[in-house]
Design a protein around this nucleic acid. Sequence first.
DNA 1: CCACATAATCTTTTT
DNA 2: GATTATGTGG
Length: 786
Amino acid sequence: MAGPMSDPFDLDDIPFDDPAPAPRPGGIAARALAASAPLDPPYLKTLNESQHEAVVTTDGPVLVLAGAGTGKTRVLVTRIAHILNLGLAKPWEILSVTFTNRAAREMRDRVGAMVGGAVDGIWLGTFHSIGVRILRQHAELVGLKSNFTIIDRDDQLRVLKQLLKAENIDEKRWPARALGSIIDRWKDRGLTWQQVQHEDAGEFAMGKTATLYREYQQRLLTQNAADFGDLLLHCLTLFSEHKDVLEIYHRRFRYILVDEYQDTNVAQYLWLRLLAQGQRNICCVGDDDQSIYGWRGAEVGNILRYEQDFPGAKVVRLERNYRSTPHILAAASALIAHNADRLGKTLWTDVADGEKVRVRGFWDGEEEARAIAEDVEDLQRKQHRLDEIAILVRAGYQTREFEDRFLVIGVPYRVVGGPRFYERREIRDAIGYLRVVSQPEDGMAFERIVNAPKRGLGEVSLQAMHRLARAGQTALLQAAQDLLGTDELRPQARTSLGNLLESFARWRAMKDQLPLPELVETILDESGYTEMWQRDKSIDAPGRLDNLRELVHSVGEYESLTDFLDHVSLVMDHDNSGNDDMVNIMTLHAAKGLEFDTVFLPGWEEGLFPNQRSLDEGGTSALEEERRLAHVGMTRARQSLRISFAQSRRTFAEWNSAIPSRFIDELPVDSVEVAAEASVWGQPAYGRHDDANFGAPVEKPWDSPGRRRMHRRNHRTVTRDGQLIEARAEAVDWDERPGGTCSEGDRVFHQKFGYGLIESIDGNRLDIQFDKAGFKKVIDSFVRPA
DNA sequence: CCACATAATCTTTTT
DNA sequence: GATTATGTGG
């Protein structure tokens, strides 16, 4: 990152007195400069009118409302180039923030392609990475040391669990996860524990939540650690309590650019606002229709309110879409039109007609996966690149079905954002060692590795250390040291612990002498960690050793241990988007910002998508967010968009009947083609979607209980590699069922689960205690009175 | 203290 | 079904 133009980062060295002209906000200097620069630089020529305006309006606040595929990244990139070209700012006077590391990487690449080495000087990164960079400079001012550890969700949960236990709170009733989200949400809203009122704390843990928050923060401070939320929250504290520090950044950041503004939470909004107060040159790019992180505290309100927050803001709309065919756009637009709270944009394109959006129904998830895999093979035969095909699912676990299928038929695929390298156990352990070496106060890391490999230091020893640490207000490692001076541990454990602590002292001494890879290798060898896996005879041990080797290799790219650990914590998405030609499988969330020729959107079923839990928690606004998610998914497609659903789906061990998603009904008839072919089993999977009345307001099965319905149940036996051994179909014709006769306490019969008793009713969903099959949730149309 | 068995919980999305 | 928390015997 140290290029020729890079920022001499020592803040004492900030070139306040930079000789370059320093244009003031909206200043004349800027205009004068602009006038003297080439009137028509080549990079502006390829922009359309709105894009051009968004780029050249350099001064003052700007909001770019950029619909999907309208070239927002291009605007951001060109804008940076333009600012540099006009000499309005030095690279290190530009702050460019994104949400994901992938977006940051893309920005960096594309800006680099335009301006060369100057890109290295730009403050370009995610909110969190920029936050860390600032925080490391001023850590002491918020009670941390500069080498603080960034902890992930796992560590967070472990700490919270300990706290809950210490407070004697029933973990079954008040799970640590829930407490974690409450604290996260507070942090998202920019609230420190001092600012949280007891009455805000609600029911959780008998009103002890605010206390737990305080304890949690104190625990982190003593361990010299910060969680994700802290990276921003500490910055806010820093900025508001130390105006001189804020002032440094005011002077520094002449131009601020923000990507995906619709996803900012309150903390991020405040962070930006504080920083932008200085020069007032802030340009935010976003799309309210793509706001999909409300559950993480994002506030669509930030973008809806922009003109009040930044008075005099210029709003530019990008509506011309360069990505998708008219049918895809029409379908996506019609869908999103069902949302009420929108700024409103009309995407248009002038490309010629393409194929219609295809909708297909299947019997079950397996058949769906099979059919999509066949489609993929078909595309492959027609010379389509696999790289240009994506399967986008609502939830992570849905990727499995496709993986299984692709493995069987031998189509190469990658799961984007799937299980991550740094989340593997052996890697986390290894990192645990590095963390303790780099930062002795890191008790969470120490706890993790103290008995890996087995050293005879189990629960009992650990408890003793914790007790001592609490009593003496010291870090766990120090407590361990102190424990050696007592006779509390059994002799064996004591020697073992003594050896470990000695080793840590030794490694720490080597830390700055050895090149990183050697250091890591030494630690892993001397600790016995490598040996532990060498001795392990389980099937995945060799793979783990490989991973450890890869880790040793990869640390070579970093300047320091801290550098590497930051990367691990913040850039969890290691780049697996190589050039290999593979089908992409990922969640809809992970797909934001990407595009593909062909996009499959499977699993469009009520309950799954829109997701029931989401709906339960958030009601209407959650439904709208789900709809935006659908919109995001659809607008990823350039040429071909194929939506599908299954009638029954297996979640863990249970079979659940499913109804096609309401989103399917919201698609416009004219742009959609319902697969006319009958399903393999001789019947369209869902009779309601015939061409005649498809898309029109039709009766929903759940409010037209009297309908006569024919169901076909298929039994299939397949071998491990998908060979069909036996298939038979059984038609199940149900009697005309009078509507609304189901009530609590009724005896009913279910084709698969047999006889049972209705315990409760929620709309069309029944909770039934079956005699044989136990408790199930079932859709009412699948049972009949017994 | 550890190894193995059983039981509970999980599946919404992520920096 | 798979991973992880809990329990029991060595």
